[in-house]
Design a protein around this nucleic acid. Structure first.
Length: 221
DNA sequence: CTACCGATTGACT
DNA sequence: GTCAATCGGTAGA
């Protein structure tokens, strides 16, 4: 269950890629967000398998973060965020979907939004699902990503640590150095637009956002 | 029930 | 660069 035999063409000779365990997500949300950069998102469905490298994420915090969907309390719609870490939180917006990974601990609502991946495997399938040929645009943006990976509400609360249907694997060959990680304010949010909780792989063409942002922001701290 | 709004995208000037 | 389509979630009558 831990190997990814389907990933022809992007598998590398070296240590086997392992599914990120629940423990990975049971940590500080910003830390999880930064470490998710470079990991591989995998989706296996009846139509086939797609995989892509995570290059852009945003953190949504449990406290003092008005942009977090759970900031006004628990509802039927956002209950995934209050559930166990390591599960998916799929939220509909503008008749599309966005994929999050729940973090921290059960009962505390926090998550990492996966905003963009670099398509690695199953590109033809993504092109068909998206109705788009340009590889750069297949999964650049949270809703595009979900369409390319056939992620919808049925995967809300799905356990990403199971290694089935939808999961994330470590790629030991890819470790981002701190200077390769850019940081900026989150895109599109109206509340808390001052918090720098977006993290992305600098100089990566598969990152979303207005032109220039990719290279503009330096990471403080 | 209605009214408003959004963690978006793609088309267009 | 600007802008509107689109629809589920949420709040409020």
């Amino acid at each position: 269950m831990n190997s990814v035999p389907d990933l022809k063409g992007c598998d590398r000779s070296g240590p086997a890629w392992s599914v990120l365990p629940r423990q990975f997500y049971c940590r500080d949300t910003v830390l999880v967000a930064r470490e998710l950069l470079g990991k591989i998102l995998v989706r296996r469905s009846r139509g086939g398998t797609t995989a892509g490298r995570i290059v852009e994420v945003e953190a949504y915090l449990p406290h003092d973060d008005p942009a977090c969907h759970a900031t006004r309390g628990r509802t039927r719609s956002n209950r995934a965020m209050f559930g166990p870490p390591g599960c998916a939180y799929v939220y509909p917006i503008h008749s599309r979907y966005c994929l999050n990974a729940v973090t921290l601990e059960t009962g505390v609502a926090s998550a990492v939004l996966i905003r963009a991946v670099e398509p690695l495997h199953g590109i033809a399938l993504m092109q068909r699902r998206r109705g788009c040929l340009a590889v750069r645009n297949l999964a650049r943006g949270p809703a595009r990503l979900c369409e390319a990976f056939a992620v919808d509400r049925r995967l809300d609360r799905w356990n990403l640590a199971r290694g089935q249907r939808l999961w994330i694997v470590d790629d030991p060959a890819t470790r981002l150095r701190p200077e390769e990680i850019g940081q900026s304010v989150r895109i599109g949010v109206t509340a808390a637009h001052d918090l720098p909780l977006r993290f992305f792989w600098r100089h990566c063409p598969f990152v979303s956002g207005p032109r220039g942002w990719t290279y503009a922001q330096e990471s403080p701290t």
